[in-house]
Design a protein around this nucleic acid. Structure first.
Lengths: 238, 238, 238, 238
DNA sequence: TATGAATGAGTCTTCATTCAT
DNA sequence: TATGAATGAAGACTCATTCAT
């Protein structure tokens, strides 16, 4: 829903309008069904029905269920990454209030991570990594790594500007993501339940606080004790 | 329910013995097959073959595939948690060198998290959470929450003793786990590939360092810049 | 229908009565369906229905349609050969009236060759030789060659006894078969229509006459011109 | 009906030319595919691909697969018959050396019968006779019967001229064909393997010898025992 | 309890055929 | 006429589950 798809680029030659529409419809429907039922349990029949096409049309376009799955995953991976990168792109170069900006960034990122598309993608990836070992690279090439890198840039800039004290921006980027996002799976039941926003907020706030305690400078300080005691009990990854 | 624990050793050779050992053999074999093929694709035939029993025997014991799956997941969850709690139990009450002890703890925990049993469990959980929503609670009741709690205890004690400066031990516990473990899925291809130990070590060391920068006191300080520059490239969760 | 099957031998170990019965039923039914529809068009569903079993039972027994086909063909080949060999075995060692005996042999052989089982087998063999190149050897090992050999023996004996004048019994055996049987496919529409017995008789009589004109001795002579002029128009191989 | 003949050359490269050549291309390609895969297994897709046309083009021309098959079979039947009749037409009216001429005729006929086009035609006929009972008449009308007749003419003339001693030329014609050709299927694996020319030669020589022993006169006699002992083992029809 | 055998339901895939251009 | 695209029907094969022993 991030409005990412304009670039197309996946197609090949000059399809007729109708054809490309059906292809799109199939891919969208397939993702829904895969997300709901899992790869193995998702029947091509169900996908065809959901897409409003006849079953052979799917085979005309994708050849086999496996292939369709790969296309769907790559497509969704691209969309999820694009949404996340958009969020990161909005991070200001010269933040007035670093704590506030980082907190807002964290909120937005967790929203991305908790998005149904993202969580379904993650679930399918976990579920099918054994059957499709190469899928991870395909999807991640356009998913996780770029995100880390895209955050490392601003962090490095902030360090150079004296607003942060860190020597390895990539590592810090990973740690920021970890601090604000690691509890998400537990909070959202692996993405199947919407988490109470206050709980997510609490995690993000606490994560940013810890991050700044570790890497902040005099600029961004208060940090008087822990910023707040809204407990929002949590648990570990699953 | 037959009391599966302690010995760990996920192996899969010497099944069969007295009488209820047959039930054991089925559960062990079933986990292997589920881990390899996923729930839907795992055929009861394959499980029976792997367990060295006839198919109806499985139905005599468990009634239905779904049931068997629940038993298996609960069993494995229990085993995984037990191993992790054992590691946490070994954390000394009065550590001489806090940084060193936390680092060792981190190493041991990542070893637990990267264990084939743990990662398979996590994959299956992600894969089947939609079909078995209650599974999460069942497994987590005996998995994640206790782990976080078991780590919060010592942290609180350390805070009381003045070795750490933190107000919410549960949160800190979660953050410690996040800092040392969040990159694991990326490093191990969701648990399908063994990660180079140096890379894991680097992540753990950096995680502990950040943790101490945020929560440490004069006791445990060096923190001279970043502890080390062994890059160990990383990426984000998936 | 020649009553050949007692020897079994195809089975393997100790099947229960019911199992072997079902297996037999499947093989019989499969042959009927294959003969009617051809290999490709014969649906396993149809075979299952004809055999009165469920489809998976067929797969339990034979694993795959292809396998079932091979078993069926081997089975039918065996039966057809056995029937033919029985006919040949009945040929008297010391025939009183050689012409009469050869004619009777010819009639019986043509009956064998025109038998529905034989003709269906032949049709299926022709139809599927490209897809199953090895089938020919399997079936023929127990079909054509032994028949030629079984006829060559008596012919050689007759030659030794001075009743025939020939030097290559195998060749003569082939030629006898050719003379009495080569027109059968044309007369029976490749085995799909019963040929008028008089026509077959005429072919056999003429074939035996030619055979004796070529290889006979004074013993068996009349051969006054052609034995009869009942034209029975014929045609060549198809 | 487009007038297919003479040039033979079943090849399949240089299709395409003016306009109706597309129809030709389809027919040629269809035969190749039918011959390879059988009627049922030959997909219209494969035929279209082999012919270099789009699938609907086939339907524009022939309406249905069944129809295409009939056209192809009639076409091939015509070509095969034409080739055989050409051989028979070359038989001299007044042979100098009857044995030699018959032998040469036999060789040429067996070459015709063993031709890939002929054997494929025969296989398809056997395979589909049940589904297309009328096909036999269609194809044979222009195939077998004329051949027998075309041979019966010269034989009758030879009898009249005193070079042969026979009263039923049609029957003799059939028997000649049987004697030289009946072993072909066995020797060529139903036309799927090229038979060693020596073996075919041996069969033809022996067949002609037997034919002349039965119907020859003093003219063509030697027939000293069997003409040669090059064993060339053989077997019976399939 | 343990098993060999059997089955109804469902899955992926292919095919002959048609429509709109 | 020629074709890209779409489809209803059907086929091989698998699976979770149940009898009868």
């Amino acid at each position: 829903m991030g409005g990412v798809d304009g670039d197309a680029g996946s197609g090949g030659e000059a399809y007729s309008r109708g054809r490309i529409d059906k292809r799109q419809a199939i891919v969208r429907a397939a993702f829904d069904v895969f997300a709901r039922d899992g790869y193995a349990q998702a029947s091509v029949d169900a996908i065809a029905a959901a897409a409003g096409v006849a079953k052979p049309t799917i085979y005309n376009h994708f050849g086999a269920k496996e292939n369709l799955f790969r296309v769907v995953m790559a497509d969704v991976g691209r969309r999820a990454t694009a949404a996340t990168l958009e969020v990161l792109g909005a991070f200001p170069a010269e933040p007035d209030d670093l704590r506030a900006e980082l907190t807002q960034l964290g909120r937005r990122l967790t929203t991305c991570f908790a998005d149904p598309v993202s969580t379904s993608l993650r679930r399918l990836l976990h579920a099918e990594i054994v059957r499709f070992p190469d899928l991870l690279d395909e999807v991640r090439a356009g998913a996780a790594t770029p995100v880390i890198d895209a955050l490392a840039g601003p962090l490095a800039r902030l360090a150079t500007a004296g607003h942060l004290q860190l020597s390895d921006p990539i590592r810090a980027s990973n740690q920021f993501i970890a601090l604000i996002g690691d509890e998400l799976p537990a909070l959202t039941a692996l993405g199947t339940r919407p988490a109470p926003p206050e709980q997510i907020d609490a995690v993000v706030t606490a994560g940013v606080d810890t991050f700044l305690r570790a890497f902040g400078t005099a600029d961004n300080s208060p940090a008087l004790g822990d910023p707040d005691p809204h407990a929002a009990t949590t648990s570990h990854p699953t």
